[in-house]
Design a protein around this nucleic acid. Sequence first.
DNA 1: GTCGATGTAGACAGATCTGTCTACACTGTA
DNA 2: TACAGTGTAGACAGATCTGTCTACATCGAC
Lengths: 187, 187
Amino acid sequence: MLMPEPSKIEKLSARERILLTAYRLFYKDGIRATGVDRVIAEAKVAKVTFYRHFPSKNDLVFEFLEYRHRRWMAWFSESLAAHGGNLTALVPTLREWLGDADYRGCAFINSLGELGEAVPEIAEITRRHKQEMNRSIAGLLPNPGSKKTTEKAEIIGMAVDGAIVGAQYAEGVEEVLDRLRRLVDRV
Amino acid sequence: MLMPEPSKIEKLSARERILLTAYRLFYKDGIRATGVDRVIAEAKVAKVTFYRHFPSKNDLVFEFLEYRHRRWMAWFSESLAAHGGNLTALVPTLREWLGDADYRGCAFINSLGELGEAVPEIAEITRRHKQEMNRSIAGLLPNPGSKKTTEKAEIIGMAVDGAIVGAQYAEGVEEVLDRLRRLVDRV
DNA sequence: GTCGATGTAGACAGATCTGTCTACACTGTA
DNA sequence: TACAGTGTAGACAGATCTGTCTACATCGAC
């Protein structure tokens, strides 16, 4: 759902193959655990090609997060709309994601936890990502744009963050989604 | 508060110096970013000594999480009690932690995000840690031990997880604590 | 028809990773 | 007095890390 099919990656340009391969590996195994040599091998490009497009690994990390942001937001908006576009759409939408076999948590929270001190830009990138997530949540409520609604969406967004990390360690996702529903119902 | 003073580490046995040094570095910089050579150098022990006490780095990681769990739980219980021992104690207690200069999020959530697939034991360790956190939260409510109270504590625990990660990327902690308070008030 | 962008394979440098090994010293205990 | 436990310094192995470099091929645009 949020992961590209490997078969479709093969036909893309070298740059896109690198980006999508990194996207998959960084999300699955983490950023530090994924060496550029592995990305290069799996994307089937030459090392020079890699460094021509991404002068350093950090450049690739930033583009990975940028790409993740666009892809995740697109999925989130579409799924919320498909489930009715009001607040009751939130839990069914998150069920799709948290229950996915490839689910490994939020790429931004994970990257922040892994590289926080070392790459300060990630906190800023994460902040923007979550702001936009909250904007999408505000769109489910009456009077989006009003201060009250914005604050409500921020509170719900915090609960969603709790569900996202909870789903990483919980035995099952349904109990997590139950808690989130009861939290959201009361806001 | 949750960090030991470096001056006090020096007087301890080699094993304790290793553990406390790892505790500090793993939490601050992450586990993969911290090589055993660095731990050995800063703990001022010989390499053989290190590997005699911790046959592999993963053994040290597990002991780090075990130590963190004990230390964090002790702080959490004490601070909740010091702030009155009821539900209103939660936000002031978390303010101490989230506002601390050394704050780098939850060691368990961070380790899980960093090593999730590679070290499956961490999910189980994290689950136990959060269960015990929820038990402490249940202790702030009437009828701790009852099913209703346990469920309530789990919901509040999810909100706390949201606040913990929120404080890692937010501009300021007060806004995060405000949201948490409003969330908890409604449970 | 030359230039710039895109692509290839793979050697190399220098740092850092985990873990092993030799060889020696001190201390408390059985 | 012999042994087990704890401690030291530092070389070494073998893998892996990021990043640079040479040398060559293809293709579209100006």
